[in-house]
Amino acid sequence: MTDRAMIEVTGLALRRGESFALAIEHLSIPAGERVAVVGPSGAGKTTLLNILSGILNPDAGHVRIGETAVTTLSDRQRRMFRARNIGFVFQDFELVEYLSARENILYPYRLTDALSITRDVRDRAEALAASVGLEGKLRRKPANLSQGEKQRVAICRALLPRPKLILADEATGNLDPANKDLILDILFEQAQAAGATLLAVTHDHALLPRFDRVINFDDFAAVPA
C-alpha cells in the first residue's frame, strides 16, 4: 500500500430532482487500499461506483483516478478510460450466457477498441483462470458453472486488462458463506497481485474486518476498520 491517493474526490454532488442523490465533500483512497463501502439501500453506494468509473458524470465536483481527472473527460474518453483502468465485479456476475468461461473473460476485449486481444492477453487469461481454480472449466458456459465459479470468471474478466481500480458491487451477495470468504480471498489476492485498489460495496458486515477501511454511507464518515 502506498500513501499516494488512487481516488481523489472533492465537492462531489449529483442531484436527482430537487434533492441530492449523492454529496461527498472529500474522499481520498490511497493506491492498493482495500475499502468496503456500506450503507442502506438507496444511500448512493452504487452511484459512487458509477461516478468513479465515469458511467455517470456528477453535477459538481471533481474525481481523479490515478493521474486522470475523470470528470473532465469526454464520453468517449471516459469509456476508453473505464475499459483500460476499471475492473467491475457485479453481484449477479453479469456473465454472457452464450459465451464460454474463456470468452467471458475476454469479453471486454470484444467490445471496445481500447483493448485488443493478443497472444499475451490469451496467455494471461489462461494463467489468471488457473490461478483462481478455473482450469479445465474454461470451455463451459455460465449455465454449467457453480455460483462461485461464475464469480471467479467475473473476477478474471475484471482483472485481465490490469486495471488500477477494481469496483465490486455486492460481489459476494449471491454466494453462500463458504464461497463468500473464498471469493473475497481471491479478490484480495488478485487485486494485491495486480497492485490494484479495491472498492467493494457490501451489506455483509461480517466481512468488514477483512478490509483496510470502511466507508459508511450512513453518516458518510470514513471509518477505519
Binding site: 468517449r76 469509456r79 454472457v96 471496445t112
Partner: peptide, 12 residues
C-alpha cells in the same frame, strides 16, 4: 441487461 453490462465494461 447484457448491453448495460457491455456499456459498464467500456463499450460505447
Amino acid at each position: 441487461r447484457e448491453m448495460q453490462t457491455a456499456f459498464r465494461l467500456g463499450a460505447g
